[in-house]
Amino acid sequence: MAGHGPATDWGEDKASDYKERLGIYLFIVYCVVYAAFVALNTFTPKLMGMIVFSGLNLAVVYGMGLIILAIIMGIIYNNMCTKAEDQMNK
């Protein structure tokens, strides 16, 4: 160690492996959705002008969708992590 530890102390976290795996899976899912968005914008920019929902085009729906997806996935991740922590760290 570099002669210093964390700023605060806490107990052992038995759920850390589970949370790490879950984080990586969710990260990969979001990466794929984000990469597809960038690819569509790059190679088929005109397609992004296609109206897809309630008068809104694909660019807006997909872009807003990415922001909302991040929030939803974050909430799901937190709930699953909290549940795992409560069960495994009893």
């Binding site: 984080g23 990260f27 979001y30 984000y34 990415l66 922001i67 991040a70 996935m73 991740y77």
Partner: peptide, 12 residues
Amino acid sequence: IGYLAGWVVALF
């Protein structure tokens, strides 16, 4: 969109 997506990396 890009700035917000970066937070997913931070979280997960």
